[in-house]
């Protein structure tokens, strides 16, 4: 088997050592078993242990290793390394403060997620057994509940870049609709009130970057559209 070498251009910044960020050119030899970009990054870390990035499940379900790969947000563990033009340019997710290298501060992202009350609201005393829900009602949650909070979508959204403190962003709005769509949730009106504001919902201009980058093939734009529809129907 011929040797596979990949060339990287990686955003590096360690506030403890570097005055300012720089792009590092570095290459690494891969083993035949290295298939994903994450495998290559782990291999690179053996060579230079200061290369910093988050990772955990390596199968696209924990949402840790989101980064900007050749200009597009994605998960390193779900990206085939051989499919990428080289040098592979890696940057931290755009729009969030960088802590170090590819590690961003996600406080603002989670603040927006928390702001939509991401939990079921139903103040009726629960029955002894499960609340009933038909398979069709449950199906309404498909495409919504699978979100892994990786932030690929929100950090690819120009509206979120401009107003991260005011616009909820695609991930948060997808979660908002996940609860609106749940027949067990009884807070639809409060949830709509919570979003009725020039910024929180209506900064979405259907640019659809979120749909383009979602590693789980979810569609926040559609969910946002449904919330907007409900808003309009409520008003008339």
């Amino acid at each position: 088997m011929s040797k596979r070498t990949v060339q990287f251009k990686i955003y590096r910044y360690d506030p403890d050592r570097d005055e300012k960020p720089y792009m590092q050119d570095i290459s690494v030899d891969l083993e035949p078993s290295d298939k994903k970009l994450l495998d290559a990054l782990v291999r690179l870390k053996v060579k230079d242990d200061s290369t910093s990035f988050r990772r955990s499940c390596r199968e696209g379900v924990c949402g840790s290793d989101a980064m900007n790969i050749n200009g597009k947000n994605g998960l390193a563990c779900l990206t085939d390394v051989d499919s990428l033009p080289q040098p592979i340019v890696l940057r931290p997710l755009p729009g969030l403060p960088v802590i170090r290298d590819l590690i961003v501060d996600m406080t603002q992202f989670f603040k927006q997620y928390n702001s939509i009350k991401p939990y079921l609201v139903n103040d009726n005393p629960p029955p002894e057994r499960e609340r009933l829900q038909s398979p069709e009602e449950r199906e309404e949650l498909n495409g919504l509940y699978e979100c892994i909070l990786c932030a690929c979508c929100s950090t690819s959204c120009p509206s979120f870049w401009w107003n991260p403190d005011k616009f909820v962003g695609p991930a948060g709005l997808l979660a908002a609709y996940r609860f609106i769509a749940d027949t067990r949730d009884e807070a639809t009106n409060e949830r709509l009130d919570n979003l009725e504001d020039p910024y929180r919902l209506f900064r979405c201009h259907t640019i659809m970057n979120c749909v383009d980058v979602c590693p789980k093939s979810l569609n926040p734009t559609r969910a946002i559209g449904k919330i907007k529809d409900m808003m309009v129907r409520r008003a008339v």
Binding site: Y119, L120, R129, E130, R131, L132, Q133, S134, P135, Y145
Partner: peptide, 19 residues
């Protein structure tokens, strides 16, 4: 498990609405 359902866990459903 029922508690978890009450918390909002999106279990799949049978035709009769149960988990």
């Amino acid at each position: 498990v029922v508690e978890l359902e009450h918390y909002g866990m999106p279990f799949d459903r049978l035709d009769n609405g149960k988990i």
